[in-house]
Computed example of a mutant assay.
Amino acid sequence: MNDVFGYVAYGDNEVYHFGALLSALKLLYHCPHANIIVATDRPEFFRPYPVETMTITAGQKELMSFGWRYHFGIKAACLIEILNRADRLIFMDSDHYPYLDPTRGFRQITPIRSFMRKCEGRHRRYPVLSGKGVKIGDYTLTGDEPMWQSGILGIHRANISALTEAYAAMLAVRELTNTDAPEQFCIGVALSRNELAVSRHHLPVSDYNTRGKKAFASPRVLQFFEMYGDAPIAEQIRRAGWYRLWRTPMDLWRQRDRWSF
């Protein structure tokens, strides 16, 4: 099996690129032989490291985002391209990172079974899809389908067609719901139809995807490369392995005035 870990990092915010790189370094600490592909519009961030890059050009970003009408289309389209280079893919958003070896997750991926980060249930704004005739493959969306969060995705190459069908529906869902979630919604539905099944992941992966977590972790991501970015790659991997992005009780106390953790 060609087992691949994938990331997508694009845009002007360097935290997304350095976040993906730090996550990849943590992954290499716990799994030195990991096969990693990063789809990015800033390949220079990753070129010195033992990862494969897939360059996203400006023209491709415009096309993937439906003419900039839905930028998360870039992530969805890149997932398809990465999966074309893999048999089994474990994808993580750039604000997710492993704290132990996650390779056992590949055993959970089959042609009929995928996993995603978690099920968020029915989205209150998606019933607007009812009666609009939006399809994923031959399935007509009702808006009552559960929303699966896509910060983590485990998927088999056999499901490229399901991702392609999901991608084709995203713009219509975006324009009808006016939300940012069509990418994960459509992927979750596509991986749940017919004989396919999607379940919650069980990987040793943490994240900083809330406002409070991000406010703490993002500066530390940049600080890591300020401190160690000129060190040999092996040293960066060693230091990344135990570099802290999670908050202590004292860190939480310092953030006590924030409304969101």
Score class of each variant (00 low, 15 high):
residue 41 D to A: 05
residue 217 A to K: 02
residue 170 M to W: 10
residue 94 S to H: 08
residue 127 P to V: 09
residue 184 Q to C: 07
residue 236 Q to R: 12
residue 142 T to G: 13
residue 213 K to Y: 11
residue 143 G to I: 00
residue 70 Y to C: 08
residue 214 K to C: 09
residue 96 H to P: 01
residue 149 Q to Y: 13
residue 243 Y to W: 15
residue 209 N to R: 09
residue 129 L to H: 03
residue 173 V to C: 07
residue 80 I to Q: 14
residue 11 G to W: 08
residue 181 A to M: 11
residue 55 T to E: 15
residue 190 A to M: 10
residue 123 H to C: 05
residue 108 Q to K: 13
residue 211 R to Y: 10
residue 202 H to A: 09
residue 110 T to N: 08
residue 164 T to H: 06
residue 39 A to S: 15
residue 223 Q to G: 03
residue 202 H to C: 09
residue 29 Y to P: 00
residue 4 V to I: 15
residue 134 V to N: 02
residue 117 R to Q: 13
residue 77 A to W: 07
residue 75 K to C: 01
residue 174 R to V: 03
residue 165 E to P: 01
residue 63 L to G: 02
residue 78 C to S: 15
residue 15 V to T: 14
residue 255 Q to E: 15
residue 247 R to K: 14
residue 194 N to H: 13
residue 199 S to E: 15
residue 90 I to N: 00
residue 152 I to D: 00
residue 98 P to I: 01
residue 41 D to E: 08
residue 224 F to E: 06
residue 137 G to M: 10
residue 7 Y to V: 03
residue 160 I to R: 13
residue 108 Q to Y: 14
residue 161 S to Y: 13
residue 159 N to W: 05
residue 20 A to L: 06
residue 46 F to S: 02
residue 88 R to V: 04
residue 227 M to C: 07
residue 95 D to W: 03
residue 35 N to G: 01
residue 9 A to W: 00
residue 126 Y to S: 06
residue 22 L to R: 03
residue 84 N to T: 10
residue 193 R to I: 15
residue 238 R to W: 07
residue 194 N to G: 02
residue 259 W to T: 05
residue 48 P to C: 08
residue 220 R to Q: 12
residue 207 D to S: 15
residue 44 E to I: 00
residue 121 G to C: 09
residue 105 G to W: 02
residue 75 K to Y: 12
residue 44 E to S: 12
residue 243 Y to T: 05
residue 98 P to W: 00
residue 124 R to Y: 13
residue 145 E to T: 06
residue 153 L to S: 04
residue 167 Y to A: 04
residue 133 G to R: 12
residue 179 T to W: 02
residue 19 G to D: 03
residue 102 P to K: 03
residue 201 H to W: 08
residue 148 W to P: 00
residue 49 Y to V: 01
residue 169 A to C: 09
residue 57 T to E: 14
residue 247 R to A: 09
residue 201 H to C: 09
residue 24 A to V: 00
residue 178 N to S: 10
residue 48 P to N: 11
residue 57 T to W: 14
residue 183 E to A: 08
residue 26 K to P: 03
residue 181 A to G: 02
residue 33 H to A: 10
residue 206 S to F: 11
residue 233 I to F: 08
residue 13 N to S: 05
residue 209 N to E: 06
residue 162 A to E: 11
residue 158 A to V: 01
residue 29 Y to F: 15
residue 105 G to D: 13
residue 19 G to R: 00
residue 70 Y to K: 05
residue 49 Y to T: 06
residue 58 A to L: 11
residue 39 A to L: 05
residue 247 R to V: 01
residue 120 E to M: 10
residue 12 D to P: 03
residue 18 F to P: 00
residue 235 E to N: 08
residue 62 E to N: 11
residue 148 W to R: 02
residue 87 D to P: 02
residue 95 D to V: 05
residue 15 V to R: 11
residue 122 R to T: 13
residue 152 I to T: 09
residue 56 I to N: 03
residue 178 N to R: 14
residue 5 F to P: 01
residue 14 E to C: 01
residue 139 Y to M: 05
residue 15 V to H: 12
residue 187 I to C: 03
residue 24 A to Q: 07
residue 213 K to G: 09
residue 60 Q to D: 14
residue 98 P to L: 03
residue 173 V to Q: 05
residue 165 E to S: 12
